[in-house]
Design a protein around this nucleic acid. Sequence first.
DNA 1: ATTTTTTTTCTAACAGCGTTTGGAAAACCT
DNA 2: AGGTTTTCCAAACGCTGTTAGAAAAAAAAT
Lengths: 197, 197
Amino acid sequence: MGIVERRERLKKQVRSDILKTARDIAREEGWQGVSIRKIADVIEYSPPIIYEYFDSKDKLLETIRIAGFEELRGEFDRIKEVYRDPEKQLVEVAQSIWNFSVEQPEVFQVMFNQDGAFVQSKKVYQQELDITNNPVWEMIARLRPKAGEKVSMTYYEWWCLTYGFISITMTTQPKHAIAKVESIYMEGVRRFIRSIM
Amino acid sequence: MGIVERRERLKKQVRSDILKTARDIAREEGWQGVSIRKIADVIEYSPPIIYEYFDSKDKLLETIRIAGFEELRGEFDRIKEVYRDPEKQLVEVAQSIWNFSVEQPEVFQVMFNQDGAFVQSKKVYQQELDITNNPVWEMIARLRPKAGEKVSMTYYEWWCLTYGFISITMTTQPKHAIAKVESIYMEGVRRFIRSIM
DNA sequence: ATTTTTTTTCTAACAGCGTTTGGAAAACCT
DNA sequence: AGGTTTTCCAAACGCTGTTAGAAAAAAAAT
């Protein structure tokens, strides 16, 4: 009777193996080096099998992107619950994005179409930065309760600053220098917060 | 006698045709859609001819990247001569980068490995953002003459803010919304300048 | 004007890519 | 054991960047 369940389990396993393998190759060779055939090789299946799990390579990458954004959003929600002070919240959010980009650079690259990673559709990207039901937007709103329209502007600026810092650091800085840049980043974030309060 | 000259002229023409065609295709279909064969088709030559002008597709893109950075740097140098006030200079620099990204988005994409464009080597990228002999660095240095080490930090932040703004805008905003974001950007730049003075 | 040499150009091919098709192999149910 | 369903893959298509070698054209030399 457990046959169907076993199959389900195996399918889930293969699916996550595909995703993991894609990330592994990307981390070692860059997303430019990720190909369906290479993934198939590692998971010891033939290439067409991958298409039983993902409609296309593009969708495969999009899955990784979505998972990345979800993980980040989870972190943000958690931070929002743990800390009360919006300033503290934002600092923590900044720190958590930074950590994410250091620990999973290849996911970050896919999330923001960087450095060889490329997902056709920008829908997820756009809606994830959207203001509605967004924890970071709400933090900023609490930080400056008077400004209505301006909150969205500030929110936009926030993302630009954060994203700019991380992506420039990722592509220009060698690993040993990243720790030093981190403090510049966090300092920049703090000054930004102060400049909008 | 003019034979050699005529050949030289023709070679230069073909070379620039290749570069222009690559940019044209990129603008219409994105860098993902740029292929050696398509370029060859447009310039009405066979694909191998392109390799008489560029060692590889990668080098071809790098040429476009270098030209882009040179054009920008020329603008910066010009601005530095025209205006005396470093604050005014920086505002003008910010505006000129913005205009560049609006007028030649495909070049901007290649310069910063964005949205399907990908150049293997990051050498040019890194040295172009380097502080030595950099007009923007000097502007910032003049803005806050006391800080020594901190100038480089601020310079780094400057690039992160600028790059973040433009690249996020380029990939998320539809054309009609760009004008509105421009004012958010310029306002952000001004506040940044004020916050470091 | 004809031949030789040099330069320019292209055809054909290689290896790799994402993706699809058709059928073989395996697993399952009865 | 036979029939059905599911799983899987070899082979192929059209695309990619790139290279080798021959053909064509142009120039130079006779």
